[in-house]
Deep mutational scan, measured.
Amino acid sequence: DETGKFLVLSLYDYQEKSPREVTMKKGDILTLLNSTNKDWWKVEVNGRQGFVPAAYVKFL
Score class of each variant (00 low, 15 high):
L32Y: 03
L32H: 01
N34K: 07
E16F: 06
D13I: 04
S35A: 14
D1C: 15
G27L: 02
K17C: 10
T36C: 15
Q15R: 09
N46M: 09
V22I: 14
V8M: 09
S10P: 02
L30F: 05
S10W: 07
L7P: 03
G50V: 03
W41F: 09
R48L: 07
Y14A: 02
D1R: 10
V22M: 09
D39A: 11
E44I: 08
T3H: 14
W40A: 01
Y12N: 10
S35T: 11
L7V: 08
E2K: 15
E2Y: 10
L32A: 02
I29W: 05
L11I: 11
G47N: 07
V52S: 01
L32M: 04
F6S: 11
G4M: 13
Y14Q: 01
V8D: 00
S35I: 10
P19H: 10
K38T: 10
F59P: 13
G27S: 03
E16T: 08
L9S: 04
E2T: 15
K17Y: 05
F51P: 00
Q49H: 08
E44G: 05
A55F: 09
I29G: 00
S18I: 04
L7W: 12
P53N: 03
A54R: 11
K38H: 11
S10Q: 03
K26Y: 05
K42L: 15
L30Y: 08
V43A: 00
L11K: 06
G47D: 07
K38F: 07
F59S: 08
G50N: 01
G4T: 13
Q49Y: 08
S18M: 08
T36M: 11
K5M: 11
S18H: 11
P19T: 10
W41Y: 10
E44W: 06
A54Y: 03
N34P: 03
D13P: 05
L9C: 11
D28M: 14
Y56G: 07
K42M: 15
N34Y: 06
N46H: 11
N37Q: 09
V57K: 00
R48A: 07
T31V: 15
E21Q: 11
E2P: 14
L30W: 02
K42G: 04
W41K: 01
V52A: 02
F51Y: 15
K5W: 11
K25I: 07
F51E: 03
E16Q: 13
A55E: 10
W40G: 00
D28K: 04
V57E: 00
D13Q: 03
A54F: 03
K58V: 15
K38Y: 07
K42F: 15
F6D: 09
N37Y: 08
F6G: 11
G4I: 13
W41Q: 00
S35R: 13
R20E: 12
T36N: 12
K38C: 11
G4F: 14
L60P: 04
D39T: 13
